[in-house]
Amino acid sequence: MADQHVPTLYEWAGGSEALERLTEVFYGQVVKDELIGPLFAHMDADHPKHVAMWLAEVFGGPTRYTDERGGYAHMLSYHLGKSITEPQRRRWVSLLMDAADEVGLPDDPEFRAAFFGYIEWGTRLARQNSQPGATPPPQAPMPRWGWGVAPPYMP
């Protein structure tokens, strides 16, 4: 029996187009939110596309964020000194998961558990790295996130 190709999270999500829809809808809600909107008051118009590029690379897609934006070090620079609070982190996660529903990202348990797992992990690191006096490593590899324990069910 030949090995069956297990799609990456990037492929399963619907590729760059799906992740761009996600971040456009998400940041449309973020800027209106009273708790986290102020953190994004001076957000560049291309920020949603850049976050989509980050997520695409993390989930096994093209390495555009590293190639075009500078990878981990560039992303880290946006969080340093922001003093993100736990309620702000939780709101960010909640709005992103709502946006995932709104744009129709796959809602199978395996995908959503893996997707949420990365979002939870990544936002906790971002919060820690944003605190006064935080000294995160200035260089690190891009995270690569996969299915974890439960790959998608493919009959």
Rank of each mutant, 00 (worst) to 15 (best):
L96C: 01
Q131I: 08
G117Q: 07
L35C: 07
H47D: 05
G133I: 15
E120S: 13
Q139P: 04
P138E: 12
Q29D: 01
G37L: 06
G104Q: 06
V31E: 13
M154T: 08
Y72L: 13
V30K: 08
E20A: 07
S94W: 01
A41C: 06
L76G: 05
A13K: 06
I84N: 12
V58F: 09
P143I: 11
K32R: 00
G148C: 10
K82M: 15
R124Y: 04
I36S: 04
W54C: 01
I119Y: 09
P106Q: 04
G146W: 08
P137L: 14
E17G: 10
A126L: 08
D108Y: 04
W12S: 01
G104P: 03
W145Y: 08
M75D: 06
Q139I: 09
P137D: 13
E57G: 06
M97L: 13
P48W: 06
M97G: 01
T66M: 12
E102H: 01
E68C: 13
A150G: 04
H79G: 14
K49A: 11
R64A: 04
P38I: 12
V93Q: 14
E86M: 12
W121K: 14
M154Q: 12
D98P: 01
Y65I: 01
H5T: 01
R124N: 08
Q131D: 11
S83P: 07
Y118K: 07
D46L: 15
A73R: 15
G117I: 10
A45E: 11
I119A: 11
W54H: 05
T66R: 09
P136F: 14
W54I: 01
I36W: 05
K49Q: 11
R91K: 06
A56W: 09
A52I: 06
F59Q: 03
A150V: 13
A134Y: 02
V30Q: 05
V58P: 02
M1H: 14
G14K: 07
I36Q: 04
P48D: 03
W147D: 10
K32Y: 00
I84R: 06
T23Y: 13
G14F: 11
I36G: 00
Y78E: 00
T85F: 13
I84S: 09
G14D: 07
R91M: 04
D33L: 09
Y65P: 00
V25G: 00
